[in-house]
Design a protein around this nucleic acid. Structure first.
Length: 697
DNA sequence: GAGCACTGC
């Protein structure tokens, strides 16, 4: 196979970058002989047409000679599917080693893995496999190329901290800078110091890769005095691969728009009036705006000449059937207009989009470590997001993107990358994971981007109050180690541990599974009333947690029927997922020595177990409150029961909540009534320290 | 009286 670069032969042409020895490769067309012969000629030809193909030699050279290689390439370059194959062909999977490629999303893992298996002409799960939560399609003896979510790779580190079976780890979509990607990058940098033979490939769609490069360049690995020849350079290489997207022409508004809903509607209509054929994708912020825009456009399309528009909403809260409409082919003579949340920016790909309308906003979650509250707010998007949105128009042919903001704003005010997820998240889960991997000094951890000290300290405090960290901020035994084993929020994990002593693990595991799902209720617009009525069939006076137990029992009794779900406004897919989580939790519980036991009808012990995890979220109804105002015990913040709770308007005197959502008020979601005496039982230290006697009257 | 999106042995 002559097209491979081999150590000791002539280097491919590389240009030295003046900035600190970073290497850029200048594209040189590269032809190669085909190696088909398995009836895969057309697949092989397709492979060779991918832009990444002509960089094969360069990539292999850089990976050979550099500990870290950063590959910048837009979608369509073929890097995700081809690079693992190049590495395999060049021998990186020999000697029992495995080539890993991580993705932020499960769906991407599955589809990329099956594509690669197909290209290689092998059965998925053998030489090429994948692992995502609940699904391990790999074979320890056979699998040489493994696709997995970055979350799964983090979990794998708990058993194998140096990830010793992998020779190369490719972290894909690193530009998204998801929480788990960032933590993974931090840990991989640490691993590199112990394993100089390990190679990292960081793949990113944008040149923001420079900051990742700087992160890996500051590696403090000490080279021996006589630096050996086969030790790779610690300076990351950067290689740029062109994408294969089509050109997208960008249009801006001249003056800032005040009402972007109205601006959206008129932009769509004018595209429809003058433009040639092609579907339109609109980015708005949330369900409310989207439904309103769909309504306005549908009305317009029904009057007179505005016919031919097929307007469809897209957001995660829709049922599967409603989401599928968006993927159905556009009928002849019609133009599809999809009005979407950020879900269409990365998670779902629509074919046939030629026009994008970008409002310039999205909803983003921000965590305030001082108040310990997560906020969902409409915020301006970043330049990176804006480019990603525009790119959605150029997948099938040259497209157009209409930005509902001024060019000057884009150039001068829009932030390049926005605030990274790690800097706007609650860090309890991340911190306990790092602790479990033996990272004692969280504040001194080499993060790719540092979270605020406040957020780190708050996470440590919460973990300390749960009794999973001790005075020296080390994991306690066994609680700390066990909580770290369970792949859930530590408060939920603590609740599961507590269920053991209360003899109600079966019930609590059910509750834990359902709490970790977005929502089990179906709520379509206009059916809120019916949903409320249906809920009464399951509603428990004790609150939402016990209500979940009733739903679960009903679902099992119906023989897991989708019809039953439909009739009861319950999301069948959510229930199926809850069952999967439940099974996983049962297995983990057994491994941790938690006896699987039901308390039958003794619900009080379930509530005590829940309190053992969530005591910090206790609230008391304000005396004489007429509008259902509560105050949190810990910080005396004003909070209210969310209207979706079965305890809305019931207002028991003492409650604990699962989470707070903040809109015009702070709403408690998933609420359970408690007896205040349980709080001191569950966390005497917490309730003595925090307030001398909060439960006095 | 109300719901961006991902993810986890």
């Amino acid at each position: 196979m002559s097209q491979f670069w081999k150590p000791g032969t002539d280097r491919p042409s590389l240009l030295d970058d003046e900035e600190g020895g970073v290497l850029f490769y200048s594209a040189s067309p590269f032809s190669s002989s085909s190696s088909s012969g398995y009836g895969l000629a057309s697949l092989e030809k397709q492979r060779q047409r991918l832009p990444v193909f002509k960089y094969r030699t360069a990539i292999l050279y850089l990976v050979e000679t550099h500990a870290t290689t950063i590959i910048v390439g837009e979608t369509g370059s073929g890097k995700t599917t081809q690079i693992p194959q190049f590495l395999k062909e060049a021998g990186w999977a020999e000697g029992g080693h495995v080539i890993a490629c991580t993705q932020p999303r499960r769906l991407a893992v599955q589809s990329v893995a099956s594509r690669v298996a197909e290209e290689m002409g092998v059965k998925l799960g053998e030489e090429v496999g994948y692992t995502i939560r609940f699904e391990d399609i790999t074979n320890t003896d056979l699998t040489r190329i493994k696709f997995l979510t970055d979350g799964v790779l983090l979990r794998e580190m708990m058993d194998d901290p140096l990830l010793s079976k992998y020779s190369v780890i490719m972290v894909d979509e690193a530009h998204e800078r998801s929480l788990s990607t960032d933590i993974l990058l931090g840990l991989l940098k640490k691993i590199q110091r112990r394993r100089p033979e390990l190679r990292l490939i960081i793949s990113s769609a944008t040149i923001e890769a420079k900051s990742i490069s700087a992160f890996f360049a500051t590696s403090k690995r000490h080279q021996g005095p006589e630096s050996e020849e086969d030790v790779p350079s610690t300076e990351p290489a950067i290689l740029s691969v062109e994408g294969r997207g089509f050109n997208v022409e960008i249009f801006y508004v001249e003056d800032p728009v005040s009402d972007y809903l109205q601006a959206t509607v008129s932009t769509v209509l004018s595209i429809h009036d003058q433009g040639s054929m092609g579907d339109i994708l609109v980015f708005l912020t949330g369900q409310d705006d989207i439904d309103a825009a769909v309504r306005l456009l549908t009305e317009e399309s029904q009057i007179g000449r505005k016919q031919g528009l097929m307007v469809l909403p897209l957001y995660s809260g829709l049922s599967r059937a409603e989401q599928d409409l968006v993927f159905s082919p556009t009928p002849r003579g019609k133009r599809k207009v999809v009005i979407s949340t950020n879900i269409a920016e990365t998670s779902l790909t629509l074919e046939g989009i030629v026009y994008v309308v970008d409002s310039g906003f999205s909803k983003q979650r921000f965590y305030n470590p001082i108040s310990d509250i997560e906020n969902l707010v409409v915020a301006p998007i970043s330049k990176a997001s804006a480019r990603q949105r525009a790119g959605r128009a150029g997948r099938v042919r040259p497209g157009k993107c209409y930005r509902l903001y001024a060019e000057e704003y884009f150039l001068k005010e829009m932030s390049a990358q926005g605030i990274l997820e790690i800097q706007r998240s609650n860090l309890v889960s991340s911190v306990i994971q790092l602790k479990a991997l033996g990272i004692d000094n969280i504040l001194g951890f080499d993060w790719p981007a540092s979270p605020s000290p406040e957020a780190m300290i708050r996470a440590l405090e919460i973990l300390y109050s749960l009794g999973v960290l001790d005075n020296d901020a080390k994991l306690t035994s066994p609680d700390g180690f066990q909580v770290a084993e369970i792949p859930l929020d530590p408060m939920i994990s603590k609740m599961i541990l507590a269920s053991n002593q209360f003899g109600c693990s079966e019930e609590v595991i059910t509750i834990a599974a359902i709490l970790s799902i977005q929502s089990i209720w179906i709520s379509a617009r206009g059916t809120e009333k019916e949903l409320d009525e249906v809920k009464l069939r399951f509603a428990a006076a004790e609150g939402d947690h016990v209500t979940f137990l009733n739903v679960y029992k009903g679902f099992i009794r119906s023989n897991k029927s989708s019809k039953w779900c439909h009739k009861n406004f319950i999301n069948y897919h959510a229930m199926k997922k809850a069952l999967e989580v439940r099974e996983q939790l049962r297995r983990i519980a057994q491994r941790l020595g938690i006896a699987l036991k039901s308390c039958e009808s003794d619900i009080q012990v379930v509530r005590k177990a829940v309190t053992a995890g969530f005591f910090a979220n206790a609230c008391r109804l304000e005396p004489y409150s007429h509008n259902g105002m509560y105050k949190t015990v810990r910080t005396s913040q004003e909070v209210y029961i969310h209207p979706s709770s079965v305890l809305f308007r019931v207002n028991p005197k003492w409650v604990i909540y699962n989470s707070l959502v903040s809109t015009d008020r702070q709403y408690m979601r998933n609420v359970m009534s408690i007896d205040p005496s349980w709080l001191r039982e569950a966390a005497p230290h917490f309730y003595q320290h925090q307030r001398p006697n909060p439960i006095a009257h």
